[in-house]
């Protein structure tokens, strides 16, 4: 285990120097903590989309990273060639809309046929389709955009959160992600459509007796889930850069969060996302930044060994 007091300013022995050392340690610790919280919230957005689609359709969309990438590319094109940097928020909305339409179309054309008589689903079919879709979309991005790496203009200038000097883009993405997560939560819990989604998630057969068109809601759910990923891509475009593989890491983190949280739990995703972001950041600070990809898996293994269904997951009951 490393100590943060291995830095040059931290080598004094006097009381005054010791206090200064502690201040520096706390300063650095707070910087890592804030970084972790910000990244955790951003990961949540991705995870929420995957979780929502699974909750409604019981399908895991393996191509979420590619919808994230399409959102990022759309934002880049909109801001660079049409809207300009000042209208980045319009770009985020339009990018999410584009990805929503694309996602809904993909569901309508490619995923819907897996449902036999609305209820019975061929899961292996969905897995093959979404993995194929991921490869296809990634290669389309290479064919259209070339192997280049792009970035849209900055959303905001450099800023500071408490002790952390920060890119304005990151702050904007953080606030944007919080707003989107809040809106999504409100939509699911308070709106009639959201309640219908809850019904579909709970019992696909039963909800039909109340007149809910399950297949229509499937299409909407797929569109909304992918739109969340697209919005995430648009928000993070100036931070993670825009290239055909830019959705890979957020997708991996998204799946980690779902497993930690437990499938189907929205509050669980927030807790798991923040935990993951903080674990990665503090792991980098106190153990080694070289293993940043492993900390999430360690957290996942610890949580699953204590709670096998995840933090907020419940065992599925079958009749």
């Amino acid at each position: 285990m490393r100590s943060l007091s291995s830095y040059p300013a931290n080598s004094g022995t006097s009381k005054c120097k010791q206090k200064e050392d502690e201040a520096i340690d706390l300063h650095l610790f707070s910087q890592f903590l804030i970084t972790g919280i910000i990244m955790g919230v951003l990961y949540c957005l991705m995870s929420m989309g995957i979780n929502f689609i699974y909750g409604i359709m019981k399908v895991i969309n393996w191509s979420m990273g590619e919808f994230f990438m399409i959102g990022a590319f759309t934002q880049y094109i909109l801001l660079t060639f049409l809207l300009g940097a000042d209208y980045w928020y319009v770009g985020v909305i339009l990018s999410a809309l584009v990805v929503f339409i694309l996602g809904a179309l993909v569901q309508r054309i490619l995923i819907k046929p897996m449902f036999v008589g609305i209820i019975e689903a061929k899961m292996e079919y969905a897995t093959i389709v979404t993995i194929s879709m991921a490869i296809f979309l990634r290669n389309i991005a290479v064919a259209i955009g070339g192997p280049k790496i792009y970035t849209p203009p900055d959303y905001a200038g450099p800023t500071q959160i408490l002790t952390l000097p920060l890119s304005g883009n990151r702050l904007v993405a953080f606030i944007g992600a919080l707003i989107l997560l809040g809106l999504f939560y409100y939509f699911i819990k308070k709106s009639w459509t959201g309640r219908a989604f809850q019904g579909v998630a709970q019992n696909r057969s039963g909800v039909q007796t109340a007149g809910v068109n399950v297949l229509k809601y499937d299409m909407l759910a797929f569109g909304i889930g992918t739109a969340l990923a697209g919005a995430g891509g648009a928000l993070l475009a100036p931070i993670f850069l825009v290239h055909p593989l830019c959705g890979l890491v957020p997708t991996v983190r998204g799946f980690e969060i779902i497993v930690i949280a437990g499938l189907g739990s929205i509050p669980g995703i927030l807790v798991a996302g923040l935990s993951l972001g903080i674990a990665e950041s503090l792991g980098s600070a106190f153990i080694s930044p070289s293993f940043v990809d492993i900390y999430g898996f360690i957290l996942l293994v610890i949580i699953l060994s204590i709670k096998p269904y995840g933090l907020f997951g419940k065992p599925e009951r079958e009749v």
Partner: peptide
């Protein structure tokens, strides 16, 4: 040392 596919180098750079 950082993983090749990394998307956020901020913790390393802060250090």
């Amino acid at each position: 040392i950082f993983p090749r596919t990394i998307s956020d180098l901020t913790p390393m750079l802060l250090e």
